[in-house]
């Protein structure tokens, strides 16, 4: 994956993009910065504390891991909404948790650097994330440490690359518009 400029974790272009007039109030929960995105609670653990935090939230009542996905921020390095102590990286792993009893949701955003796109797997905590982690691995190229079967899930096994990354092209089939045709099936 040849990294494009501005995407690698050297941080030089990221910092100025954070407008100073947009201070995000630093709140903490379980020692992790918390932010608010459109009224939804977002936690920003680092990769080391991520698994332990999910475990802890599970004990708090967030029994259900609803969803896990990856986001590639290549080309949009300066992100608003991140707490000041969180260093933006190219990839993010986003986990949505749900608390059935208190009827509330929370979301975890883990920064994952391009140089080492690996995060600990949550399958042992939430078995239901197995397929989502495989999908994220398949399409986004993020590895999950400790996953029982990290193989491709949607794409063929011999596929090269990870299509949801921003440096993978969408691919197009050229459309030939016919000139001077008279209705369907007309020849140019």
């Amino acid at each position: 994956m040849a990294g494009e400029d501005g995407a690698t974790g050297d941080g030089a272009p990221e910092e100025p993009a954070q407008p100073g007039a947009d201070p995000v109030e630093e709140q903490m929960l379980h020692g992790v910065p918390v932010s608010d995105s459109r009224g939804q609670e977002v936690l920003h653990p680092d990769r080391d504390g991520y698994r332990a935090l999910v475990e802890r939230l599970r004990a708090d009542g967030y029994w259900v891991a609803v969803d896990l996905c990856g986001v590639d921020y290549l080309g949009t390095p300066g992100r608003r909404g991140l707490p000041a102590s969180v260093q933006p990286e190219r990839f993010e792993v986003v986990v949505n948790l749900l608390d059935h009893r208190a009827r509330r949701r929370t979301r975890l955003r883990v920064q994952v650097p391009e140089s080492d796109p690996t995060v600990p797997s949550l399958v042992e905590v939430h078995p239901g994330l197995e397929a989502s982690e495989r999908e994220t691995h398949d399409l986004m190229g993020i590895s999950f440490d400790g996953h029982p079967d990290l193989s491709r899930i949607l794409l063929p096994d011999d596929w090269e690359g990870h299509p949801l990354r921003k440096d993978e092209s969408t691919g197009r089939i050229p459309v030939q518009f016919k000139v001077g045709s008279s209705g369907a099936g007309g020849r140019p």
């Binding site: 459109r38 609803v66 986003v94 949505n96």
Partner: peptide, 19 residues
């Protein structure tokens, strides 16, 4: 506007979400 959001609805098969 810039931001990120997760919304879910109850589809006939369960929770359908959009991030």
């Amino acid at each position: 506007p810039e931001g990120e959001v997760y919304v879910a609805v109850e589809n006939p098969r369960g929770e359908l979400g959009c991030y």
